[in-house]
Structures are given as structure tokens and as C-alpha cells.
Computed example of a mutant assay.
Amino acid sequence: MSEPIPWLIESSIQIAWNYLERAGEIGNASEGSRFLLRTVDEMVRKGEHRKLMLANRAIEAYQRHRRVIAA
């Protein structure tokens, strides 16, 4: 049985956040949380429901986003 969608989104964001925080990659916390929420929410709407896939793709997207901002 799969998790309800809100729990799936929350869990995926928490995994991504924990990783990015430990890696020292979270800049502005408010901006980071909004970015992760938008990214995970969009993937869920497109049909992805694997928690670790959502988290990993959100991490990659956030890292790309931060590189673009830094350039």
C-alpha cells in the first residue's frame, strides 16, 4: 500500500532537505524549501510516486539551480 500523496511529498522533501543541509548546500532556507516543494509537486503531478526518486531528482534540480545562480 502506498503513502497518501501529502505524506509522499513531505517525506521526499525531507530526504532531499536532510541531504542538502548536511552537504552545506542550502542557501536561503525559505527559497530552498519552496524550490523543493515545487519540484517534488510537479514530479508527483506527472506520475512519479517513488519517494527516493523524487528526493534524488529534487536534489539534482536544486544543485543545478544553485550552480546557475552562482554563475
Rank of each mutant, 00 (worst) to 15 (best):
I13H: 05
H49T: 14
A70F: 03
A61P: 11
I13L: 01
R67I: 10
N56R: 08
Y19F: 10
Q14C: 05
A55V: 03
V68D: 14
I9S: 04
E42R: 05
V40R: 02
L37W: 09
N28S: 15
I9P: 02
M53E: 15
E48G: 00
R66E: 15
T39Y: 03
Q14K: 05
R66S: 08
R67H: 12
I59G: 14
N56W: 00
Q14S: 14
Y62V: 03
I13G: 07
S11V: 03
R66Y: 04
I15A: 13
N56H: 05
G24F: 09
I15K: 11
S30K: 06
R50D: 15
V68S: 13
E3S: 01
L8D: 03
A71E: 15
G47M: 05
S12Y: 06
Y19K: 07
S30I: 06
A29G: 03
R57W: 06
L54N: 14
G27V: 13
N28G: 12
E3Y: 04
R34M: 10
K51F: 02
E10K: 06
I15S: 14
H49Q: 09
V40K: 05
A58D: 11
M43H: 11
I5C: 11
M43R: 07
A70S: 13
T39D: 12
R38W: 09
R67N: 15
I15M: 12
L20F: 12
Q63R: 12
L54T: 14
A55K: 02
L36T: 02
R45T: 06
V40N: 07
M53A: 08
P6T: 06
L36Q: 01
S30A: 13
I69W: 10
N56P: 00
R57M: 02
L37F: 12
E10I: 04
P6Y: 12
N18P: 00
I9R: 03
A23Q: 15
I9M: 08
